[in-house]
């Protein structure tokens, strides 16, 4: 598994009017190996997005001159399918739905952790350039067959509950990438709220006991302050 952020120079456009947040984002993305450009308003952002060849757009919802949703709308109308992640202070369910309907690919309410944003951007960019959905995933000696719903590690067949299967499927689909708790809750359970307890951690530890317990090399890793990642220990 080699598709981590540092391996390919990914191009990112950040459209954000708050100077300080924008600088912080540009700097943080550059540190993890991205080429990050910045636009301060909707018009400039639209012009840059049309001209540049970006892997992902990070767009603030409320922008001067042209709001974020209309930037995405204008791009989509012209056939530009660059994945777009909407940042918004309006974090509620129907705002998210509005954002996704307007052509956004993901939605992250402010305030957010950079780790969360990074994880989501990586997932988006990979989806953009990456291969179509595969019928099976393989990480190390762990294999998941999406058609037969079989999971094996080495020669051993593992028995997973349906939800555990979907959890593992999502993790393996994004193998080598950090997947946050909210991403799991959204994609595996389809909930967009924020549980006050460590409910996801408990599911992960159950899954971990099934796929890693008794094996020499752990595959499911906890990334502190961010989430989880499944990858072969030997990179």
């Amino acid at each position: 598994m080699t598709l981590t952020s540092t391996d390919s120079q990914m191009r990112l456009l950040i459209i954000e009017d708050d100077r300080e947040s924008a600088d912080y984002l540009v700097k943080a993305f550059r540190e993890v190996g991205y080429v990050a450009d910045h636009a301060g308003d909707g018009e400039e952002g639209l012009a840059l997005a049309e001209g540049g060849d970006y892997d992902v757009l990070v767009i603030d919802r409320m922008l001067p001159k042209r709001d974020g949703l209309s930037v995405i709308g204008a791009l989509r109308e012209k056939g530009n399918r660059t994945p777009a992640l909407i940042l918004s202070a309006l974090g509620q369910v129907d705002d998210r739905i509005k954002g996704l309907r307007a052509g956004g690919d993901d939605y992250l309410p402010k305030p957010y952790a950079f780790a969360e944003l990074l994880a989501r951007v990586e997932v988006l960019s990979r989806r953009h350039g990456g291969p179509a959905e595969e019928t099976s995933y393989k990480v190390g000696d762990l294999e998941l067959d999406r058609l037969s719903h079989r999971v094996t590690r080495g020669d051993e067949e593992l028995t997973l509950q349906p939800r555990e299967f979907r959890l593992l499927e999502y993790l393996m689909k994004h193998a080598g990438q950090v997947v946050t708790r909210t991403m799991l809750l959204e994609n595996v359970w389809d909930y967009h709220f924020d549980p006050q307890t460590n409910v996801i951690d408990v599911h992960i530890s159950r899954l971990r006991s099934k796929i890693d317990k008794g094996f020499e090399r752990p595959l499911l890793h906890t990334i502190r302050g961010a989430g989880y990642m499944i990858r072969d220990g030997l990179k």
């Binding site: 974090g91 509620q92 369910v93 952790a113 006050q196």
Partner: peptide, 29 residues
């Protein structure tokens, strides 16, 4: 520090959610 601020954000989100539910804005969905 980050853990603490995450807790703060959660509290704040919950407050917003309540305000929104109470003001009836979510009726559209």
């Amino acid at each position: 520090t980050i853990e603490e601020s995450d807790g703060l954000i959660r509290t704040f989100n919950a407050l917003l959610m309540i305000a929104r539910a109470e003001s009836g804005q979510a009726r559209g969905n």
